[in-house]
Design a protein around this nucleic acid. Structure first.
Lengths: 138, 138
DNA sequence: TCTCCTAATAGGAAGTATTCCTATTTAAGA
DNA sequence: TCTTAAATAGGAATACTTCCTATTAGGAGA
C-alpha cells in the first residue's frame, strides 16, 4: 500500500497524522532491512532529533494492529517488516540479516489446523542459518 | 532419549552431573507444557528449594547446545520444548498454551534454501490462534 | 575412603528491550 | 483563531536474561 493511502486511511479512522508517524510509516514500509525499534528510532532521529523511542514503539504498535507491519522476535528483540503477506523469514545467525522468501504456507496451515482444535489467526515461519556473506567465514 | 542415556552422555563429555541438572533435564523432557525458565524454576524449587534461577538458565543453555531441547520465543519470553524433531508449535494467544503438531517441513525448507543463498541450520514455525478452550470465550 | 581441583551453584547485581507514566505539545475540527 | 483531546518527549518502571563472584560439591586419582 502507498504511504498516502495509509495516511488517508488512518486519518479517516480518527488517528492524528503527525510528522513522526509519517516518517516511521514511510521508513518501515520502504526498507528491506527488517529493522528493530531502535534502528527505526536512529533513522527517524536524523530528520526529527527530538523524536522519542516510546513514540516509535507506540506507532509500531498501531501499525501492527492495523496489520500494516509484521513483527517477528529474534534473540529477544522485535524486528519489523512492511511485507504483511505471509512468507518465510530467513535469518542469518551471524550478522542478523533477514530476507523474505515468498512461499505458500496456506496448505501447511490448513493441515495443522485440521490436526489440532486451534482457530489459527497468524503464522510465523523462520529459517535460521548463514547468509551468503557469512557462511564462507564461519 | 531417556534420562539415563542423557546423563551418561553428559558425564562422558566431561560435564558434572548435579541433582539440579538431573531435575531440570527430567522435568523438561517429560512435560508437554513448553515451560518458561521461571516455570521450570518453580517446579524444581519444590524438590530443591535452594536452586537458583541462574542455574536453570545455564542448564537450559547447555541442553540447547547439546540439542536436547528446542527454544522458542513468545511475547519476549523463552519457552522450552523437549521435542527436538522439527515440528509446528501452535500457540494460544489468550492462555499461552502451546501444542506440537508433527508436520513435514523438510520440503518447504528445501524450496526456501534453493530460492535463497542461505545455508539453513534450523527452523521455527509458529501458528498463533485460539485453543479449543479459549476460542469459544473470545 | 579421603583429598584436591575446578566445574557448577546461589544469590544478587547489571544489562537489555519494552511498557508505563505524566506534563507538555499539537493536530485538526469548529 | 480557539479549543480540546490525542499524541509526544523524556524518563521511570518493569520483565526477562545474562553476568559476576564467593562458596559448594562432583568425581578423578591417591
Amino acid at each position: 500500500m502507498q504511504l498516502e493511502q495509509i495516511v488517508t486511511n488512518l486519518r479517516e479512522e480518527g488517528f492524528r497524522i503527525t510528522p513522526q508517524r509519517i516518517a516511521i510509516v514511510d521508513y518501515v514500509l520502504s526498507t528491506e532491512e527488517h529493522p528493530s525499534a531502535e534502528q527505526i528510532h536512529n533513522v527517524i532521529k536524523k530528520k526529527y532529533p527530538m523524536v522519542s523511542l516510546s513514540t516509535v514503539y507506540k506507532t509500531l504498535d498501531l501499525l501492527r494492529q492495523k496489520q500494516l507491519v509484521k513483527q517477528i522476535e529474534i534473540g529477544g528483540e522485535a524486528r519489523f517488516d512492511g511485507h504483511t503477506d505471509e512468507h518465510i523469514n530467513l535469518i542469518c545467525m551471524k550478522c542478523g540479516k533477514i530476507e523474505d522468501v515468498d512461499e505458500d504456507l496456506k496448505e501447511i496451515q490448513v493441515r495443522a489446523a485440521r490436526k489440532s482444535k486451534y482457530q489459527i489467526v497468524k503464522s510465523s515461519f523462520e529459517l535460521f542459518g548463514y547468509c551468503s556473506a557469512c557462511k564462507t567465514h564461519s
